[in-house]
């Protein structure tokens, strides 16, 4: 009456092999995609550099030109577009890096290039304001992904204001995690005496800790001569 017990090894091995293949397929596709993402990021980075070179030439032309007003308008438009592109692709690269299980170093290198780009644009924005005037606020945002748990809060608030003011507000995020590799970050930190994270710098003034909605709104508004621009 007893059943003849059987342990079917072949079926288990076949099932395991198929599972393994599906798993490997997923992993391989993921890795292929990651490679594509890195290529895209590098392309974007090159694009940013070309944009910057072009802007720099426009700026040089501006300083030597007589008809400043017209060039100013053109330059501002090109500048806004470049800074927006820079912000968007940086967001994307950060999310890609978080998903990536491999290629950590590649992403770090790309992000470093982005920091330098950001700092260049920031400098250019300051020079431009001197030359052309114009109503817009510039914010330097110091943060860290590794050692600062409240930084995302500031990030959310800044993103909100960026949406609110659009081209009237320029935010340049500086990731201090890359300080050791990128001395420009160190120089800026020392210049504004940033000891605490997050910190923002608006019109050469440093504000430490998370700056809330109301205070930030006030700070940004103080930058504008025309108070009508203020959104309250």
């Amino acid at each position: 009456m007893k059943v003849k017990r059987d342990f079917n090894r072949t079926r288990i091995i076949v099932a395991f092999t198929i599972t393994f293949l599906v798993f490997t397929l997923g992993l391989t596709l993921g890795m292929l995609l990651d490679t594509q993402r890195i290529q895209w990021s590098e392309r974007e980075s090159k694009q940013q550099k070309a944009d910057y070179d072009s802007l720099q030439w426009q700026y040089l032309f501006l300083t030597s030109s007589e008809n400043k007003e017209e060039t100013c308008i053109l330059l501002k438009a090109a500048f806004d577009k470049s800074v927006t592109d820079l912000g968007e692709s940086l967001d994307k690269i950060q999310s890609y890096r978080e998903q990536s299980q491999i290629n950590e170093q590649d992403y770090a290198l790309i992000e470093r290039a982005y920091i330098i780009d950001n700092l260049r644009y920031w400098l250019l924005a300051r020079q431009y304001k001197e030359e052309c005037g114009g109503e817009y606020a510039v914010i330097l945002y110091f943060f860290s992904e590794k050692t600062c748990s409240i930084c995302p809060d500031q990030g959310v608030i800044l993103t909100h204001f960026k949406k609110l003011y659009d081209e009237k507000l320029l935010v340049f995020p500086i990731n201090t995690d890359l300080e050791d590799q990128e001395s420009s970050v160190k120089i800026l930190r020392a210049r504004y005496n940033v000891t605490e994270l997050p910190s923002i710098v608006v019109s050469n003034r440093k504000y430490s800790g998370v700056v809330g909605m109301d205070s930030l709104s006030e700070i940004i508004c103080n930058n504008f001569n025309d108070k009508n621009i203020c959104v309250r």
Binding site: V22, L25, G26, L27, L29, G30, L33, Q36, R37, W40, K92, S95, Y96, Q99
Partner: peptide, 11 residues
């Protein structure tokens, strides 16, 4: 963009 798809999760 198509690059945003999380392939591993989808598979």
């Amino acid at each position: 963009s198509i690059l945003d798809i999380e392939v591993m999760q989808i598979v």
